[in-house]
């Protein structure tokens, strides 16, 4: 056992590479998480309100965004999507290396996923509440902003939690093609160099990270849920 720890604390993969890798992972998840919420939330709202019988029914928008863009993106496995997006990433951020570059493919994979979660959360808001908002003279924007989103807030917070946890998993894959981060560290040292202690440490950190995100998310949901 002491040998294990001796190896652990003398291993440069742990002593010098671990911290930057953690920071890279947090950057990837942070940037792509933010982009996902900023773009995915409105997209989810549009998917919901454009559906047949919705607040702003639009077959064209629903088919284009839902059946086409969202479903096609979600059909592509992330491992393939991230490789396929390398040229696009170069155009957007100028490089395909680093956390910022990795965030492009992470966001593109997570946005449709999150948008569908948002749509499902909004669908759970009782339609009678929207009728009430409408009958009191709300504009469509007011109905969405002051009634629909606040009423769905617990579901939205839970969706963000699920999405961030998913992004932590994807970020390990993104690390392999240049994103860096904990996934890259575990792969290079734990897998390719057979240093299983590095693998174990990275796994423990990832588990703790996911637990922390889930716990924070659950607490937030309880705080905003008045049902």
């Amino acid at each position: 056992m002491s040998e294990f720890f001796a190896a652990l604390f003398s291993n440069p993969a742990i002593t010098t590479a671990l911290w930057p890798a953690l920071v890279e992972t947090l950057l990837m998840v942070g940037i792509s998480g933010l982009a996902t919420v900023v773009i995915g939330l409105p997209l989810g709202v549009v998917l919901f309100i454009s559906q047949p019988g919705g607040l702003a029914e639009s077959r064209a928008a629903n088919v284009l965004l839902g059946a086409t863009i969202v479903n096609i993106t979600r059909s592509i496995p992330y491992a393939i999507l991230m490789v396929a997006l390398i040229p696009f990433t170069r155009v957007i951020v100028g490089t395909s290396i680093g956390p910022l570059a990795a965030s492009v493919s992470l966001s593109i994979a997570a946005i449709p996923f999150f948008a569908r979660l948002v749509e499902a959360g909004l669908r759970d808001v009782h339609p009678g509440k929207l009728d009430a908002a409408h009958a009191m003279g709300s504009t469509r924007f007011q109905t969405v902003w002051k009634v629909l989103l606040p009423e769905a807030l617990p579901a939205l917070v839970a969706s963000v939690t699920t999405t961030v946890v998913t992004l932590i998993g994807y970020s390990a894959m993104a690390g392999l093609i240049g994103g860096g981060g904990l996934g890259r560290l575990a792969y290079n040292y734990g897998y390719q160099r057979f240093q299983s202690e590095v693998m174990i440490v990275v796994l423990i950190i990832l588990v703790l990270l996911v637990q922390l995100v889930q716990w924070t998310g659950d607490r937030l949901v309880r705080r905003v849920d008045h049902r």
Binding site: H126, G128, K129, A132, P150, E151, L153, H226, R227
Partner: peptide
């Protein structure tokens, strides 16, 4: 409304 349709939030 029948179910009052109050805003829970």
């Amino acid at each position: 409304f029948q179910q009052a349709n109050l805003f829970d939030s």
